[in-house]
Amino acid sequence: MKVEVSEEMHEVCPEFVGACITSNIKNTEFSKELWEEIDALSQHYRDTLTTESVKTMTSIQATRRIYKLCGKDPSRYRPSGEALIRRVLQGKALYQIDTLVDLINLASMRYGYSIGAFDSDRFVGDTLKLGIGREGEPYEGIGRGMINIAGMPVYRDSEGGVGTPTSDHERTKVTLSTTKLTVLVNGYDGNEADVRATAEYILERLSKYCEATEAGYHIYHY
């Protein structure tokens, strides 16, 4: 799968850098050890952050800025990295979905990036392109129904949108039957070192918790 950044996105965020991770995996319903990691990070954030200070994390700050530049209110349509951290700061537990989704949520919390996870077999075509959502563009967010993605960064395959920083699409979501995985790390802050660190963090945990094979990643930008 090729990943490209459109000219319209480059104009809004010329510093964008992303990582595309691919792997064969085995998903499971629950991992106790993974949730020990999630709980420990959640407590660390409760001890060190507030719902105001979380906005100063550079990865979150950059994603919020891009939402505004594209025409979206980041306080109404929160990027996933920020939404996850805010949830734990409010004393709420994260939703437990399955090992793979929980793992991606952990990485998104750890680094603040919005990270998309997709079942590679559900893509249409051989290219994903990062652009900006259009008025009236249909998009069914996972567990959200139809959402308005106008003015929101969006990855599209040959059939349409598959991922935004707020929610990925029902059509390409990972499930317990997913065996081929694609993960996209979105560095709107342009920090390639942190994007690489996030990708390597995910790969380590895919190996540990999801029996990853043939796993690797590449960096992409405009």
Rank of each mutant, 00 (worst) to 15 (best):
1 M>S: 14
1 M>N: 04
8 E>H: 10
16 F>W: 02
19 A>I: 03
28 T>P: 00
29 E>R: 12
32 K>N: 14
34 L>Q: 11
37 E>Q: 15
39 D>R: 14
40 A>K: 12
47 D>K: 14
49 L>T: 03
58 T>A: 08
62 A>C: 07
62 A>G: 09
69 L>C: 01
71 G>M: 10
73 D>V: 07
76 R>G: 13
78 R>F: 02
81 G>C: 11
83 A>E: 10
85 I>G: 04
87 R>S: 11
88 V>N: 11
89 L>A: 12
90 Q>N: 15
102 D>C: 07
103 L>A: 06
110 R>T: 15
114 S>R: 03
115 I>V: 08
119 D>L: 02
121 D>A: 10
124 V>A: 13
131 G>T: 14
135 E>T: 13
137 E>D: 13
138 P>V: 10
140 E>M: 13
140 E>F: 09
143 G>V: 06
144 R>L: 15
146 M>T: 10
147 I>V: 15
150 A>Y: 09
151 G>P: 12
152 M>K: 02
153 P>L: 09
161 G>P: 07
162 V>Q: 04
163 G>A: 07
164 T>Q: 03
172 T>C: 15
174 V>P: 01
177 S>T: 13
178 T>F: 11
180 K>G: 03
181 L>D: 08
182 T>Y: 00
182 T>M: 06
187 G>I: 05
191 N>I: 03
194 D>W: 04
198 T>P: 05
206 L>W: 02
212 A>C: 09
214 E>M: 10
219 I>R: 09
